[in-house]
Simulated assay, not measured.
Amino acid sequence: MNDLDMDLLLGPEDDNGRSRRQKGNGRRGRRRRRRRNRGGFLAPLLALIVLLGIVGGGGYYGYLWVSDRLVPGDFSGPGSGSVALEIRQGQSATDVAEELERLGVIKDSRAFINAVTNSGKSASLVPGHYTLRKQMRAADAVTELDSNNRQYTEVTLKEGLRLSDTFTQLAEKTKVPAKDFTAAAKKAGDLGLPDYAKGRLEGYAFPATYQFPPKSSATAILTKMVDRFKETADRTGLEAGAKDLGRTPHEIMIIASIIQAEAGRQEDMGKISRVVYNRLAHKPEMHLKMDSTVMYALGKYKTAATFAETKTPSKYNTYLHLGLPPGPIANPGDHAIEAALNPTPGTWLYFVATDPNSQVTKFATTDAEFQVLLNEYKKNGG
């Protein structure tokens, strides 16, 4: 057995604790160190060769993996079929991209984000309902999500419509049966009506131009109209203004509905409002004697009530009953609401649309002046 073998068996130290490497000549120790150094160099070299072999053999697949991570996939065609998408208020371009990928419209949400960024439309994705196709190019999907391509039904409701007429027009435009609107109106809690409306929708279905999404329910449509009313109420300061006038918000809406029904022109609304307030405050108390409230009670559409019609027992007959009727007689617009809150200063107690064709309205303070206006009305074919 040689000295190297003995070293391996006995260990690096002798019985006295001295290193065995100190024994013998230096040449043998140097040989052993050279052998060990060669072994330490070969191991990393072999590992590097193996690694290069693996990389070389799988390089193509590695390239594909990296490429897929860096370049998002995209469909090559215009797509086919039909997919409905709703962009909701507050959604980001990333939210929309992920939804489009989930629906199969685009292949990779990142491709859509890139296309949106390149088009400069990242901040112009407008909430609404859109129709797209499956397996579309991301850039084509961005083009289709233009606000002009939104799907909706536009309905314009004029100021002064009665609720029954509002339902008729909504049904014609939206194809939702009128009976659905009637049923929905009875569930005031579902519509978000203010407490002072007393559970009645008449007067609070705000007249405006609306864009309703496809397949909107009657409840959703009426809720949107009530929301629009509440926005107007906030803007005009309805509750605070009513308190200043010593009235409730509901009473202001009743007055506004009468102003809307009686006024032929916007510029007359403030004066008509003053006539209503002057009559309500008159001592002795006066009947309002508004033909519009009588017509509402009878379900008719005329500007002047006959003597027989003024005898109807309805509480909406202001010829027969003192004070305001129980509720609004129509859905007033913002100008009528503002007039009810800001009556024009004056002492008038009467007004007459002296020329039905031009809708000019004149005002009077005394009964004698009123009779003059009535004669002018008759002379003009009234």
Results as ranks from 00 to 15, higher is better:
L373D: 02
S257Y: 00
G11L: 08
A242I: 06
T143C: 06
R18D: 13
P214L: 10
V352A: 01
K186I: 08
N25R: 10
P356T: 12
Y130P: 00
N317G: 05
V176K: 04
V294T: 09
A205G: 05
I329G: 01
N342S: 09
F112T: 08
G24F: 02
A111C: 05
G192F: 12
G327A: 15
V55T: 14
T143F: 05
L52Q: 12
G104N: 07
T174V: 09
P313Q: 03
A184C: 10
T365A: 13
G333K: 02
M253K: 00
M269D: 03
T166I: 13
Y350R: 07
G58D: 14
G327V: 04
D68P: 01
K302E: 14
T354W: 02
W348D: 13
Q371R: 15
T312Q: 11
G203A: 04
G29T: 14
P249K: 04
I258Q: 02
G246R: 11
N278D: 04
R20E: 01
G237W: 05
S124A: 13
R247G: 09
A84C: 03
S82W: 06
G40P: 03
M1N: 09
E369S: 00
R274C: 06
A218T: 10
G62C: 10
K311P: 01
F351V: 06
L103F: 06
T168H: 06
I252D: 04
T232D: 09
A256D: 01
D15N: 13
G77I: 06
Y130T: 00
Y377F: 15
G346S: 08
L145D: 02
A218W: 03
L103V: 08
R30E: 15
T293P: 01
I337S: 04
R279K: 12
G29H: 13
L320C: 05
Q371M: 13
R36C: 01
K283L: 07
L322M: 11
G264S: 11
L10R: 10
F307E: 15
H250S: 09
S216F: 08
M290A: 10
D180R: 03
M269V: 04
L280H: 12
A185F: 02
L191I: 02
V142D: 08
P332Q: 11
F229H: 13
T365R: 12
G11D: 07
L51P: 03
A256P: 03
F75C: 04
F206T: 04
N357P: 00
Y60R: 15
D15Y: 11
R28L: 14
P249R: 07
A364T: 07
G57C: 10
G189I: 10
T344L: 06
K107N: 07
G90I: 05
P127V: 11
F229M: 03
E285A: 15
R88I: 12
L324M: 11
Y350A: 09
P332M: 13
A47I: 10
K215E: 15
L52R: 08
L341Q: 12
Y130E: 01
T219H: 09
N317A: 00
T174W: 00
I272W: 09
H129T: 14
R102A: 14
T354R: 04
G192Y: 06
T366E: 02
R200D: 13
A220M: 09
I221H: 03
L42D: 04
I106E: 06
A340F: 00
Q169V: 05
G62F: 14
G241A: 11
D14E: 02
